Amino acid sequence: MDFLARLGLSIPLIQAPMAGTSTPALAAEVCNAGALGSLALGALGPDEARRQIAELRGLTIRPFNLNLFVHKTPQPDLKGETAWLDALAPIFAEYGARPPSALETIYQSFAGNAGMRDVVMEAKPAVVSFHFGLPDAATITALKQAGCLLLGSVTSLAEAELSHAAGIDILVAQGWEAGGHRGMFDPDAADDRLGTFALTRLLVRWGKLPVIAAGGIMDGAGMRAVLDLGAVAAQLGTAFVGCPETNADAGYRALLDSDAACHTVMTRAISGRPARCLANRFTHFGQRTDLPPVPAYPRAYDAGKALNAAAKPHGETLYGAQWAGQGAPLSRAMPAAELVARLAAELAATRP
């Protein structure tokens, strides 16, 4: 498969979906600049998803990617969740607030989600990508029959094998360096923590599916490195966080531009799944050894978002989900189209 030709891309670049941070405006600017823009639907319900897809379609006529979260729906655990809320209570109290009385499953998985499946089937985007797992066989078949190219995020060869058997077209090799949520199918399984280079090369040598490399890639030199390893494209997320088109708030942007960018932390404390975040007060809290087990994703995220909402009016921004990869110190704040052009020029300059 000629990935670039199929989508009409002028640069082998995908903007990572980044739920909560990316926007239709960001995806459109990336698409219009010749790369593949992505719109994250994992944190949205059907109505808002339709609205954002319509907004994106009003800003670009080029192919784009819709991204879905396919996580296991958690079962409430009253005792464990109460213990977690009790552990957070003293921090809430610092800001004159109390934690939620109970946790809710704030995001619905794409697995078995008829409403979101209808949204995606109506949209028939050029690309659909999955994080945390894979939908059922009927959904994959329907999307492929609709002409969608299917991308699956994997962190291991075992997940790649499952993706190949399910009918995924291209793998997104997410290295340990990557910012945001680790795409492990089972967040409680042993994690070999493969880096982007090792995982990309392993999957390229395996050879059953094309590979897109993701994690720690911030500039044209990094893109060239993974292309030389056999990837068909590079997926960049943290590189785009500082763009004015994202939803990143002032606190997130300031932290990305600080020394914290040199000290990212993999944590479950914010959302309930492993995710790489800029070092902040929440990641520091999550490193305590006296904490009860973190509730499952996304129920823990209900508490995390409530804490951030309680702290921000008091000028405290360091309880946010300020996701970033290990390449964060290389971040450059500029409009998305300008960044894509810069990356294209840097990539071209690496040719012999």
Rank of each mutant, 00 (worst) to 15 (best):
E161D: 11
I61G: 14
G251M: 07
L78Y: 10
A336D: 06
A309L: 09
A93Q: 12
A5Q: 15
E81R: 12
D188Q: 14
R273V: 08
H164Q: 12
V120L: 10
F3G: 01
D302E: 10
R276A: 01
A114C: 05
E94W: 05
V294Y: 05
A189E: 06
A250M: 05
W323F: 15
R50M: 09
I270D: 01
A303M: 09
I170N: 01
Y252C: 04
G45H: 07
G242W: 09
L13M: 12
M184Q: 08
L162I: 04
W323D: 01
H263D: 11
S38A: 13
Q15K: 15
S38P: 03
E159T: 06
M334W: 05
G147M: 07
G195P: 03
P125Y: 02
H314S: 14
A123H: 10
S156T: 13
W84T: 02
L143Y: 00
A33Y: 01
E29N: 12
G80H: 07
P293V: 11
G237C: 13
D192I: 02
P63E: 13
F197M: 15
I14T: 00
S22L: 10
L151Q: 00
P74D: 06
A43M: 14
G20D: 03
A214I: 12
L171E: 03
L339A: 04
P12C: 06
E48H: 08
T289S: 13
P17T: 11
V120C: 09
T60V: 11
D77N: 15
G272H: 01
V70G: 02
G242Y: 04
A311K: 00
M184R: 08
A40N: 06
A344P: 11
L194S: 04
